[in-house]
Amino acid sequence: MKIVVKLFASLSDLLPADSRANSMEVVVHDDATANQIIDLLQLPRKKVHLVLQNGLFVEPQDRDLPLIKEGDAIAFWPPIAGG
């Protein structure tokens, strides 16, 4: 299935040069998990702190569950904060 992967902050270095708005389309198998996508992108898992699926928080323990659907947007951030 096709999904949209978004990489932000220091993770955005991994995006192809022609990507727009920090996102790219990726084809994954139908029961892909967040952690499998992280591995596919060769991101060190401990560098990925925040995962949002269609804007909703993915709990660390849910990152190995096949919760992703066709067309979903999965966004990843390293450790960040703001104010």
Binding site: A9, L52, W77, I80, G83
Partner: peptide, 11 residues
């Protein structure tokens, strides 16, 4: 703090 711009927009 500006890194939050995309996070909060996604949310």
């Amino acid at each position: 703090t500006q890194v939050l711009m995309n996070v909060i927009n996604e949310m």
